[in-house]
Amino acid sequence: MRRHLHVMASALFIILFTVQAHAQYEKQGWLFGGGFNFIDDSGTNGSEPFNFTENWSSVVFPSRFSMGYALTNGMFFQGFASYNRYQKDVIVDGNPQSTEWNYYALDGMIGYGFKNMIDPRGWFDPFINTGMGVNRLAGNNSLTYNLGAGFNFWFNDRFAVNLSTLGKWQLGDGSGDNHIQHGIGVVFKPDLGKLFAGKQETEENNTLVVNDSINKQPEIDRSLVASTENTPLEKEEETVPPAAETQPVKSVSEEEKRVAIINRLKSDLASVERISFEVNSSFITLEDLEKIDQLAAFLNYYPTTVIEIRGNVDPRGSEEYNAWLSVRRANRIKAYLSTQGVAPERIKAVGSIQNEIEGPCREGQPCTEEQLRESRRVEYILLDF
């Protein structure tokens, strides 16, 4: 037992040291998983890993479920519940099994994903994990020390295919049943904050934003309609003044009208609150959605406008990574606006690897966290109307 505890302590040290040395570019959140488990209890210590017919036990229905939580630094915590059935003639500890046994297990694990060491934006996410569990086999309960590894293959920010292998050693006098448990399944990482925000609250916020935008609509520039103001609304007797006293109507050129409209649109667009993403993140929070809803209200109120969304980054990070991250941030906002009825062709999403904010954050100069946050604030630019 002392040897197993030393192994566990060593595994925890490796995980914690790795967490301090590297940062995972993902948002923290809950993890849910399901799939199948396969047990190799043949006693071969992994020397015959692909002898499926004689060494592996499995069932035909989903038999492995998990729930956990992933942190922004790459560490994760997970609990597993699994079921299996040892069939007749399967090799157990070197001997053919003569009866069928039911297998139940509950395991608690702590682990770390190494995706950041390979490609923070990639789909390949290898991990290691360790922990303890309890299993019941043939009516006997045993406590186990677990050590394993595996891979997550992320299709997007929410779904991944999971492959894993877990070695289990019974704690005690060493006479217990040691075995290997393999798993294959899917992992789902939902945005629970957005899920439980409530449709009603979102609709109320949208209504308030739209109404506020309408109420703030500036008065019509009277100079733009000066040419129509000399038309009387009602026919009535008029006294025509002498020609010498007639005041000429000031004409407004098309260019002056265009400039006035542009200035009004730019003023309204500048009043829209901009969001500032968290470090190494392109995820939109509930607070961010309220601000982006203001932009949606602007675009819906002016249905012919075309804008550019520029995702900014702070000066930290490599040029290649910052270029990718800034474009990803802009596309996140564009994707949300499309759900609010804004046509994608009206939005140009671009990135920026150059800090556009004037101040000490430029060119590697020292600056405060607030200044760094300001440099990550997105920009909205009017392109056409």
Rank of each mutant, 00 (worst) to 15 (best):
S281C: 10
G139T: 08
T305F: 00
F32W: 13
F50P: 05
P360G: 04
Q87R: 07
A297T: 08
R222P: 00
E358I: 13
F52A: 07
V252R: 09
P190V: 04
R332C: 09
F155L: 14
V59Q: 12
R329T: 04
P49K: 07
L166K: 14
V342G: 06
N141M: 05
N156A: 13
S164E: 13
S352C: 11
T239F: 10
R85Q: 06
I220L: 13
A197G: 00
A335F: 05
E345Q: 15
I284V: 14
I118M: 06
Q247H: 10
G133R: 03
V306D: 01
T72H: 10
G111Q: 00
G139Y: 12
F77Q: 03
L71F: 15
F188K: 03
E54F: 00
E203T: 09
A81K: 02
P366N: 07
S47N: 13
G29A: 06
V350C: 13
L382C: 05
V342H: 02
Q217H: 11
Q78C: 00
N73D: 15
I307W: 02
K199E: 10
A105F: 01
E54M: 00
I15C: 05
N211W: 07
G113S: 14
F155H: 13
K115V: 03
A23E: 10
I262K: 03
N331H: 03
A323M: 05
G150R: 04
I128F: 15
Q365S: 07
D41Y: 12
L325F: 04
V7C: 03
P344W: 07
V342I: 14
L383D: 02
N84W: 00
Q87A: 05
S338E: 15
G311E: 01
N140R: 15
E54H: 03
N146Y: 01
I118N: 08
G43F: 01
P242C: 01
